[in-house]
Amino acid sequence: MSKAEEILSSYRALGWRIATAESCTGGMVSAALTDVAGSSDVFERGFVTYTNTAKVQMLGVEEETLNAVGAVSEEVAREMAHGALAGSEADVAVAITGIAGPGGSEFKPEGRVCFGLAVRNAPVRSETVEFGALGRAKVRAGAVEKALDLLLFASTK
C-alpha cells in the first residue's frame, strides 16, 4: 500500500477530509493523493498559492507576516494551513512553502521548506526541513513526502 493509500484509508476510517495549501510544490501533494482512485471521499480541495498575493487572497495570510518574515517561514506555513482549513470543509490541512531552487540566499537557502499542519480544534503545528541544494525536482519530491508524512501523523493522533 502506498503512503497516499494509507493516508486515505486512515482518514476514511476517521471520517476526516483533507485540504492542501501548496506553494513550492505547485499541487504535487494534491496530485499524490488524487492519483488514488476513490480519493474524492477524503480529499476535499487544494489551494496552489504560488505568489504572495495568492496566499493573501486565497488563504488569508497576513501581509504583515509576509513583510516581517517572508513567504518561506513557519509563520506563513501556519497561516497557510489555518487558511486552508478555514476556507474548506476539511478536518486537516497541510501547507508547504519553500525555496525549491535554484536560488536562495544566505538567510533563506535553496532547499529550505516550511510546513504547516492544521487539525480542527487543535493548535497549528509547523516545522522547517533543510533539504539542501539537491536540485528543484529532489527538493519538491522531498517536500511532498514530508507533507504526506505529516498527514499520516495527524491521522494517528
Results as ranks from 00 to 15, higher is better:
E127P: 01
L117I: 08
D149R: 00
A143F: 06
V119S: 13
E127R: 10
E127W: 05
E130N: 15
E145I: 01
G142Y: 01
R140M: 09
F131R: 03
T128C: 10
E145F: 07
R140D: 03
G135H: 10
R120L: 06
V119I: 12
E127F: 13
F131T: 13
A147D: 03
A118L: 01
A147N: 02
L117E: 07
P123E: 06
S126Q: 02
L151A: 11
V119P: 09
R120I: 00
L134E: 13
R140E: 04
G135S: 09
S126C: 12
D149E: 06
R125F: 01
P123S: 11
A133L: 13
E130I: 14
T128I: 04
K146R: 11
R125S: 14
L148A: 08
R120Q: 02
E127V: 07
A154F: 12
A137N: 04
R125P: 01
L152Q: 05
A118I: 02
L117V: 10
A143T: 05
N121F: 10
V144R: 13
R140Y: 02
V124Y: 03
A147G: 02
A118F: 07
A137D: 11
T128P: 08
K146M: 11
A118T: 12
K146W: 00
A141Y: 03
E145R: 00
S126I: 11
V129S: 05
P123A: 04
E145M: 02
A154W: 07
N121C: 00
A147E: 05
L150H: 15
L148E: 01
N121E: 14
V119M: 06
T128M: 14
A122E: 15
V119H: 13
V144W: 12
K146Q: 03
P123K: 11
A133P: 15
L150E: 13
L148D: 08
L134M: 13
D149F: 08
V139N: 09
L117R: 07
F131E: 05
D149P: 02
R136L: 03
A141H: 00
V144P: 01
L148S: 04
V129M: 02
R136I: 10
V129A: 13
V119T: 15
A122Y: 12
L117D: 09
A118M: 09
L148C: 06
R125C: 01
A118V: 06
F131V: 14
V124N: 00
L150G: 10
G142T: 08
R120F: 09
L152A: 06
G142N: 04
G142I: 07
N121V: 09
V139C: 10
R125A: 11
D149A: 15
V124L: 12
T128S: 15
G142Q: 04
A118D: 04
E145A: 03
G142R: 00
L152K: 07
A141F: 01
R125L: 10
G132R: 15
R136V: 08
T128L: 14
F131N: 09
G132T: 14
P123N: 07
S126D: 04
L117Y: 03
T128G: 09
R136Q: 06
R136N: 03
D149C: 00
A137E: 04
A143H: 08
L151R: 01
R136E: 00
A143E: 02
L151H: 14
L152F: 06
K146C: 06
A122Q: 14
K138G: 04
A133M: 14
